[in-house]
Design a protein around this nucleic acid. Structure first.
Length: 115
DNA sequence: AATGTGACGGACC
DNA sequence: TGGTCCGCCACAT
């Protein structure tokens, strides 16, 4: 399956109230070095494919969208499902990052991240 | 085949 | 905290 399709599948799997990082999605989709593609996919088809795009944030736990260009909307959507986002758009990854089935521990995620 | 496009990430002041 | 710099790569043109 195309990498892009895998990316969409992974994003759709993020549950309400949780977030995932671009790099995390890239790793789950099969290429830990393709974080930029995740961004590209979101930019290109988050609307068309009804992706929960707001649940994807950067590796520092922050909203990547610029103010006035989606930042406020993303923060609102996240807060709407119980995710605490501070004024600068930061989310506490230790509390809200999605832990995919089969990768129960933070250690496993860490392993994937630095592969 | 070559080039452009990204909402990235990590290293490094 | 923040800023720049640079390596990364699937996909469209």
């Amino acid at each position: 399956m195309k990498f892009e399709e895998e990316v969409k599948r992974c994003i759709k799997a993020i549950p309400r109230g949780k977030v995932a990082t671009y790099a995390q999605i890239a790793a789950l989709a099969g290429n830990h070095r393709a974080a930029r593609q995740v961004a590209r996919v979101l930019h290109a088809s988050s609307d068309k494919d009804r992706l929960p795009w707001h649940r994807v944030i950067n590796s520092r736990g922050g909203i990547s969208l610029r103010r006035g260009r989606g930042f406020e909307t993303q923060r609102k959507l996240l807060r709407g499902e119980g995710v605490f986002v501070d004024r600068s758009g930061r989310v506490d990854l230790n509390g809200f990052q999605w832990e995919p089935p089969g990768l129960p521990s933070k250690a496993a995620n860490e392993f994937l991240r630095r592969l």
